[in-house]
Write a protein that binds this DNA or RNA. Structure first.
Lengths: 157, 157
DNA sequence: ATCCTTGCAAAGCATTTGCAGTCAC
DNA sequence: GTGACTGCAAATGCTTTGCAAGGAT
């Protein structure tokens, strides 16, 4: 195995923090590592519990502050389910989110909207300057059976 | 002008409530009317303040209960911005939501995802049974200038 | 040495809940 | 008449904040 003294991920964090006038700390690094690695969109509390194994003394307030700072720097994204607490996403490649109506879990779906679709949206969104988008799919994950004979249909609101 | 003693909107509400085993009350009707008519995605508090002009004695708790019930019946939709409080949407035609990064306002954008796009999502969402979706656009509304020379780009996460 | 960050505990909000009286059915 | 709904107020739970001590640059 090859080990480099400094992981590229850490370098990215250092540089991004510096660029936005923030300092690199053990706590922020640990929070970043955890959400970047996680695939389950942890809540702030999840991150807190997870990070405590690496940084035993960290406080929940620090986790909140770190998460918001990462979001501000573009290193994480905040998901806000209609129920319960906010969830964070550290994988920054373009993808959508699929939320299960039964178990509440949120999983990632690869892909992004096509250019035609985007162009159509721009045209419709009269006068709105489009910067980004967030597509959340709702339905039932493979572990949760749909409530029988549901007519397959996808409706926006 | 032609006036019918009972408005079609009220009938819809009555029937939907009955169908799901709930009762028709003045408070619920007022809440429903307000969000069905509103174009600004009011918060629970907004609804509370607005409905009080029609039903002076209504309480905030009742507004919350009514809103959640309407969402449960499919007569309203709940939007959960990453900041602040939940917003409700009573216009049920397919459309997207555009949230302004400057003023925080949410406006509607007509349209729905194309069938090709949906099919692609289904294919990607391996094992996920798709029921619906919610597309939120982020950017700057016509009243708020974008922070100058921003490279036009739309990125999902 | 400077000033940003941390950790703690308390505060702040939005939302929910328990309960007795009231109302729709 | 019965059971659901309302209004009130207290409770809950997530998130934020103030401040003194500690750490990064």
């Amino acid at each position: 195995m090859k080990s480099s003294g400094t992981k590229p991920q850490e370098t990215l964090l250092r540089q991004t923090l510096q660029a936005s006038g923030h300092r690199y700390t053990e706590q922020r690094a640990a929070v970043f590592r955890l959400i970047a690695r996680s695939r389950v969109h942890p809540t702030a509390e999840d991150v807190f519990l997870g990070v405590r194994t690496e940084v035993p003394g960290i406080s929940l307030a620090t986790v909140y502050k770190s998460l918001e700072m990462l979001v501000g720097c573009g290193l994480a994204k905040k998901l806000t389910p209609p129920d319960g607490s906010a969830r964070y996403c550290g994988r920054m490649e373009p993808h959508h989110h699929a939320r299960c109506l039964a178990c509440g879990g949120v999983s990632d779906v690869a892909g992004e909207l096509g250019n035609l679709e985007i162009a159509a949206l721009r045209a419709q969104a009269n006068g709105f300057y489009l910067v980004g988008y967030e597509l959340e799919l709702t339905g039932y994950c493979s572990d949760c059976a749909p409530p029988m004979g549901t007519g397959a249909g996808a409706s926006s609101n």
